[in-house]
């Protein structure tokens, strides 16, 4: 029995569909990346999962209960741009979040101290949130989502707005958190998804384009690929265009002297291309043979 079951979820705003019939299940203990370009419906989906937006149609079932029960007490949620009470200190805010999650004063005091240390805000806990940096606010946001030990953590673009150092800090925290709870996080940065998640749900235009475990997607969608860059001479451009019709090339993307070929046989393709390049005296600048990445899959799904 999965922890979270989503069935045929729809959301439209004034007749305009934002999420258009998505279904997925999430097993306890997994870390799931909700991928997709801007406007794919990731934030809307997460807000529906967090109970902040009523769905137009479809059901959400949590922990085997009946659909529609309020499961917010088992949930930790961090929105894309978390806004805090700037007149509170970090410690006061975490304490408040713990109390709102249903803890009594003593439990809340113990839990908030521990969680502040964990997210690395122990020394800044007494300062007003108004003076926090973006990275500190994001870590405070993680802290308020974690303080009541949720069974499911929903994170909307947790690292997208951070600088490389802040991003590193939050990613390390996530790596740690995913060991003890189920995590769904949305992102448009593929590298982040590849780094820590087990499963991927790739959304585009309100529907799920592809979903599965990261390893199965890699196995299924990784194609032999050859990338090459030539000089911008006419002969080179003409040569690249002519390559489209070779038998071993399944798909070609050519623009401005750069080409990406999906091929059936890397060995054959490499030999043929290099040979031709030498014979025709093509000014090759770059040549790379390998397999496609999640980014290629993303571009393929989103681009079409």
């Amino acid at each position: 029995m999965p922890l979270l079951m989503v069935k045929d979820l729809h959301k439209s705003f004034k007749g305009h569909p934002s999420v258009n019939g998505i279904s997925f299940g999430i097993e306890a203990g997994r870390c799931v990346a909700l991928l997709g370009p801007n406007g794919a419906g990731k934030t809307t989906t997460l807000r529906m999962l967090a109970g902040l937006l009523p769905q137009t149609a479809g059901t959400i079932t949590f922990g085997g209960g009946s659909p529609g029960t309020d499961y917010r007490q088992y949930l930790g949620y961090l929105p894309q741009a978390p806004a805090f009470y700037n007149w509170m200190s970090g410690h006061e805010y975490i304490l408040f979040a713990a109390r709102m999650s249903g803890m009594n004063a003593r439990e809340a005091a113990a839990a908030s101290g521990a969680v502040l240390e964990r997210v690395g805000l122990g020394s800044a806990a007494r300062r007003r949130i108004g003076g926090y940096s973006g990275g500190m606010k994001q870590r405070l946001g993680l802290g308020q989502a974690l303080v009541h030990r949720p069974r499911l953590l929903l994170l909307d673009e947790p690292v997208s707005a951070l600088d490389p150092i802040g991003r590193r800090e939050v990613m390390e925290l996530l790596r740690d958190i995913r060991e003890e709870t189920t995590v769904i996080f949305s992102t448009h940065v593929l590298h982040d998804a590849e780094e820590i998640c087990d499963d991927v749900v790739l959304m585009n235009k309100g529907t799920i384009a592809v979903q599965g475990t990261l390893s199965s997607l890699r196995a299924e969608y990784s194609l032999p690929v050859i990338r090459l860059t030539t000089g911008k001479e006419d002969s080179a451009i003409r040569w690249l265009e002519a390559l489209r019709h070779k038998d071993f090339i399944e798909e070609a993307l050519i623009s401005d002297g750069k080409a990406v070929f999906n091929v059936t046989d890397v060995e054959l393709a490499r030999r043929t291309l290099l040979q031709e390049a030498v014979e025709l005296d093509i000014p090759l600048l770059q040549f790379e043979a390998g397999s496609s990445t999640l980014e290629d899959l993303f571009m393929k799904v989103v681009g079409t």
Binding site: A50, G51, L52, D70, R72, Q73, L75, Y77, P79, A81, P82, A83, F84, Y85, A97, M100, S101, G102, G141, Q144
Partner: peptide, 13 residues
């Protein structure tokens, strides 16, 4: 408008 209610209402309140 500031967005603090989004965090508050995600709690079981």
């Amino acid at each position: 408008s500031s967005g603090t209610s989004e965090l508050l209402m995600a709690k079981p309140v």
